[in-house]
Design a protein around this nucleic acid. Structure first.
Lengths: 250, 250
DNA sequence: CGCAGACTTGAAAATACTCAATAAATGTGG
DNA sequence: CCACATTTATTGAGTATTTTCAAGTCTGCG
């Protein structure tokens, strides 16, 4: 019954039972959409506020020359889009990459809840700060890291963020991360992702078990290679099992 | 007397005289700092909310291997940091690159003003959405554009953003944009920036007039080269002189 | 004038891309 | 459950882009 969003927001530390319940009461409805469904289209007005109960999606922007850049991956527990109040057209699209269970929120009720529940408002602010931190880290990753490090770093982020929403903590990533998707995320080509991933595999750091099943075998070694530092996630409870493994990078 | 911040927020469209005055009343003090001064240090707590009255600064993150990535440039009128309410350490630093006149705000009074002036709150939200749009565009620029296009695109953004805060609209950029700074911004090396910039110069698109004086000579041609689309800035008044020049890219 | 920092230029090396062909995995309909 | 079509992944060879290293030049300033 506990939603991934609640699990995620609770990790900020101050969300009360009452705040969580008030938040959940803002839900209009749940909706199951297919993989490949467009939730928001670049150039069109931003409609609703929703979050992912299950499944993965991407924020991405398409260029005139046909190339695509993925700006961020959306995992269960992620919230999309508090910026709805600004009535300019969206500057990017959001598309599901697996079947996704959405919960849609009533913007008016949400605004009321923010105003009346300070603990919820503060958890939501933390969530926004975390999302911006993730965006900034993505810039660093693409701008100043070599392909192998870049990929390793992204995989570690996905594992850690999956845990944030209450998902697997065993290093498994279950999402259809095709080479093309990883390439569009990291500013590389699918061919180079393929080569880089098999280099990581040869080093015994990750393994593949069929489509969309990626397994991180040696998380500490991968974190060392990736120079991975979770600070950008603004975690407030540094006692998570994954974080101890990640900080063995010293 | 009109601050660049007010000029910028007014471009959202709904800020009233009363809202602007209430905002300005939140200022604690103005402070002049040297170039090279650190306003916020990665790893340390985020202290105050401030904005730039004049001068330029950078948000940047340093890596363990000594490399640096600039996340964003801060221009007059830009606001830094509404995330102060989250009490986790900063994930990046902010450093001035010219002498800067800061105005510092009282967080408590600012919160009150947001609560009591809906027009100001909405302008501030717009500002945050714009900043996120700029971050996302930076990801696209670094991830999916070639060096020449990348540089052209950044220069156009700087010219347009300079105008947002009430600065020059003639294509001049007056800031010490060293090759190294542009390189750390765009994920390239200073040497390559040097070569790329001289290619733009040879094409008659930009010219240099000494240290820190960059002049865009043919803004429409540069916008065409850069595939420049201002949508990510979420402008609400598309009648600006610069925007007509920029949209001649079709 | 002379220094220091920033810029330019060339040549060689590294990294990532493109093209193309093959192989593997997934999904579909009989 | 199998055969086929489709998408995705791998691999090799050649190319393009960007980096690195190094030497030399320019510029602003005390």
């Amino acid at each position: 019954m506990t939603s991934p969003v609640i699990i995620r927001l609770q990790q900020q530390g101050s969300l009360s039972q009452a705040g969580a319940e008030a938040f959940l009461a803002c839900r209009d409805r749940n909706r199951l959409v297919d993989a490949g469904h467009t939730l928001m289209q670049q150039g069109e007005p931003m409609r609703s506020v929703f979050c992912l109960e299950s499944g993965w999606a991407i924020r991405h922007r398409s260029l005139a020359n046909g190339r695509r850049q993925i700006l961020n991956l959306l995992l269960p527990g992620d919230i999309c889009d508090l910026q709805v109040a600004v009535d300019t057209p969206a500057d990017h699209s959001v598309t599901t990459i697996t079947p996704v269970m959405l919960s849609e929120f009533n913007p008016g009720r949400l605004a009321d809840t923010i105003a009346s529940h300070a603990d919820f408002a503060s958890a939501l602010l933390w969530s926004a700060v975390q999302e911006e931190g993730i965006l900034r880290e993505h810039i660093v990753r693409i701008g100043r890291r070599a392909a192998k490090v870049r990929l390793a770093h992204l995989l570690l982020e996905l594992v850690r963020r999956q845990a944030l929403g209450g998902g697997h903590t065993d290093g498994r990533i279950e999402a259809p991360l095709t080479r093309e998707l990883l390439a569009d995320c990291l500013g590389l080509t699918p061919v180079h992702i393929s080569r880089t991933l098999s280099a990581l595999r040869k080093d015994g750091l990750v393994s593949l078990a069929g489509r969309g099943r990626l397994q991180i075998d040696d998380i500490a070694a991968l974190a060392r290679l990736a120079d991975y530092d979770t600070r950008y996630l603004h975690l407030t409870q540094p006692d998570h099992a994954l974080d101890t493994a990640l900080s063995e990078a010293s």
